[in-house]
Design a protein around this nucleic acid. Structure first.
Lengths: 106, 106
DNA sequence: AATTCATATTAGACTTAGCTAATATGTTTT
DNA sequence: AAAACATATTAGCTAAGTCTAATATGAATT
């Protein structure tokens, strides 16, 4: 793996490593939604959500589609969905250990 | 997904979202290694590597095994390896999508 | 039992990520 | 063309993550 590739990989994974972003992904997992729908469902701050959407888009995790004044976001493809499911699977394995990771703040 | 579970999920994913940690994982992917072997191979700082190992361990991504004065680290299980491979697969997608999407900005 | 070796921990500086509030851009609606 | 609406961008602040250097712990060697 090249230096450049590992940087891209970090960028990709980083896209998943935030609560708001994970919630956005859960939110649009089944079907595309507009920014305001996401803001509404997550009870979030519009600016904040918009920034996270930009991040997810920049990471290649989601895609945006403009329609008039709305912008619909959805997962980029099926593999992203599979990856999300894989996280859940691994999480089941790992459940108890993660709970005591000292390197993170709750 | 419960509130608590989503936090655990973030912690797990966070474990993968750092260059040094990804390099460590690549390094021990095939077989267990001692801390000093990892430090040597990555040409890294001992303290730094040790902290990242603690993080990976705390996230349930790797396990440590003491043998005398040495400590051997390895991937926790096969699922972790699969997840690592999944990242590469998804990364390829992102690459190829980007490659054939004229509208994409860097 | 003193020294060396392998690893872990701590402290402090530095960097990056994330948040909110304010403002800008662009598109409909009136 | 003005107002309302949807989304994006920017600025400034705070919190969290990461690094290095120094020190501690604990096992093996002498």
């Amino acid at each position: 793996m090249t230096e450049k590739n590992i940087d891209l990989k970090i960028k990709l994974i980083h896209g998943f490593s935030n609560k708001v972003r994970l919630q956005i992904l859960e939110c649009i997992k089944e079907k595309e939604k507009t920014v305001s729908q996401i803001v509404e469902e997550l009870k979030g701050n519009q600016s904040n959500i918009s920034q996270h959407l930009a991040c997810l888009k920049g990471c290649g995790i989601i895609v945006g589609r403009n329609e008039g004044k709305y912008c619909y976001y959805s997962l980029r493809n099926e593999r992203i969905r599979e990856l999300l499911e894989m996280f859940d699977t691994v999480l089941e394995d790992v459940h108890s250990d993660v709970a005591c990771c000292a390197n993170h703040v709750d």
